[in-house]
Nucleic acid binder design. Structure first.
Lengths: 161, 161
DNA sequence: GTAGAACTACTCGGATAGAGGGTGTCCGAGTCGGCGCGG
DNA sequence: CCGCGCCGACTCGGACACCCTCTATCCGAGTAGTTCTAC
């Protein structure tokens, strides 16, 4: 059970975008050069973020990506779901139906105790992710590393050429 | 990010094994026939459980698997880790090192705020899994479906021939 | 000088190959139970 | 009748193919800026 590496990229990229104060868009190539990531592949992840309504994309010259909403309204869960999909990690395949006393018309996703326990754990995970917004991350980083926003903006302008 | 299907099989199998009151071992073929699972592949999962010390295996005639400890001392996390491995889903690849102001000698797994947030969520998931023991599941099932243990034992003896 | 239109270069977007891990299967090593033989 | 040794079959254990998802890449569609021309 491993998470796509794109989640990490997407989270860091969203954080970087949150420091772009003026309304300009940042293109995928620039965002990728930030961490020496493969540009085309990061672009793919950004497309997923755009489909999820987390960023907006603009084509053509001076185009690129920018956050679609305020950082307060973007949770970590939003980003994870945008990249990984909405499906949960533990998928109950209802094997109880094949066991003794298995009923064809029972929804074992609801009645199976093991499925419930696994879902409860995963719900706890999701709740924790939903409780953290991009603004929280941003504030923590700015508190611990006050130079980060400025460095990020400088790098963006330097890479623009 | 999807969990191996073997986790579901392992959990149900451990639960079934918990209903074997006498000390006899159940072979993989019988355990697989219980839910019409591929026997050889379930055997592979049972090997993982054996390596993790959750079940003990016996070779030869009348051999098979039995629980290595009491159900109270087997948590859901134990089973999940035995099948999925100890590595966490979100693996911080420390991409901050490539960014502006990246230090070669800093452990970004510890300092990166995003990594911390993701780890916190995953810890919550693990904690929830560790809080549920196989005995808890067993008790809940026996309370809701009192016929389950008897059915399971009957099926085991029926499949033994 | 200004407005319009065409052109050009730039950026995203989806369609297209390659690699790694999960899925599934098979056969061999080791072991336990049973059977036969001898005392 | 009882004990011992051999034999045989049975079960786990690890080594071997297959497939799907993640990773990575490329080229085309669409767009905004620019430039040129005509009024």
């Amino acid at each position: 059970m491993k998470m796509s590496e794109g989640v990490e990229w997407a989270l860091h990229t969203c954080l970087n975008l949150s420091w772009v104060t003026d309304g300009r868009a940042i293109r995928a190539t620039t965002l990728a050069a930030f961490y020496e990531l493969p540009p085309a592949y990061l672009n793919k992840q950004l497309q997923a973020l755009a489909r999820a309504g987390i960023v907006t994309s603009t084509s053509g010259p001076r185009g690129g990506f920018r956050l679609a909403r305020r950082p307060e309204e973007i949770t970590l869960l939003d980003v994870v779901v945008a990249i990984e999909g909405t499906e949960e990690a533990f998928r109950c395949s209802e094997i109880l139906r094949q066991g003794p006393g298995g009923q064809p018309d029972v929804d074992y996703r609801q009645t199976c105790v093991i499925s419930q326990a696994m879902r409860r754990a995963e719900l706890s995970w999701r709740r924790e992710l939903a409780a953290q917004s991009l603004a929280d991350i941003k504030a923590t980083v700015e508190h611990r590393f006050p130079a980060a926003p400025g460095q990020t903006r400088n790098r963006f302008t330097a890479l623009r050429g």
